[in-house]
């Protein structure tokens, strides 16, 4: 049996990968794990429900959104720019982490995660939310509902969600420009 091959070029965490030959029909998570050594995105359910596998897709219109790599084929990402959990923290020229992102730092400070399996997905979801609020702030009174809506699809089995949600809420409330007055 021969497996058809398709070319893929994708920019991940600011670095272009490819063009490379990818067996047609591989999901993006397989490419990240098996071909690129980026194993931080987690396979949780494989059917697009738990959202442990989401990466951030940076669209040309400067918006960003989550994409589930377990059910999205590699082909979808051809020519696109994405961020994975490996690219979230700031690193120096040697690749050493010098600063965590505000979301990552808040998750650490607030003991948000336990086993950590769902954490990359939560970091990405919260990052996308923060970026959205930069473009379109919400009234302070709506922050909790906004956080809940943005994270609802992410499954966590360990934490009961409370410390994740609280950390994201606090990041939003303490970052200038993400909220406006009102309820």
């Amino acid at each position: 049996m021969t497996i058809p091959i398709r070319p893929l070029t994708v920019t991940i965490n600011g670095r272009q990968h490819g063009p490379m030959d990818v067996p047609e029909g591989l999901m993006m998570i397989d490419v990240l794990h098996e071909m690129l050594g980026l194993t931080g995105s987690r396979l949780g359910c494989g059917i697009g429900i738990c959202h442990a596998c989401v990466v951030i897709w940076d669209r040309d219109d400067q918006t960003s959104e989550e994409v589930r790599t377990c059910i999205t084929g590699a082909g979808f990402f051809d020519g696109k720019r994405i961020r994975t959990i490996e690219g979230t923290a700031q690193t120096d020229e040697r690749g050493e982490i010098v600063a965590l992102s505000p979301v990552q730092q808040a998750f650490l400070d607030q003991f948000s995660f336990q086993c950590g399996y769902c954490t990359p997905g939560f970091v990405n979801a919260a990052t996308v939310l923060v970026e959205r609020l930069k473009r379109a702030p919400v009234p302070r009174g709506e922050v909790q509902a906004t956080v809940a809506a943005a994270l609802e699809t992410h499954i966590c089995r360990c934490t009961g969600y409370v410390r994740y949600y609280q950390a994201v809420r606090d990041v939003i409330l303490t970052t200038p420009g993400l909220t406006r007055d009102g309820t």
Partner: peptide, 23 residues
């Protein structure tokens, strides 16, 4: 075909068989 493989096949399958009780 390329679009189907990229956006649909992850759940509905490369051969369109879906997944029993799921998709």
């Amino acid at each position: 075909r390329i679009s189907y493989v990229a956006l649909c096949a992850g759940c509905h399958g490369l051969e369109g068989n879906g997944m029993p009780n799921t998709v």
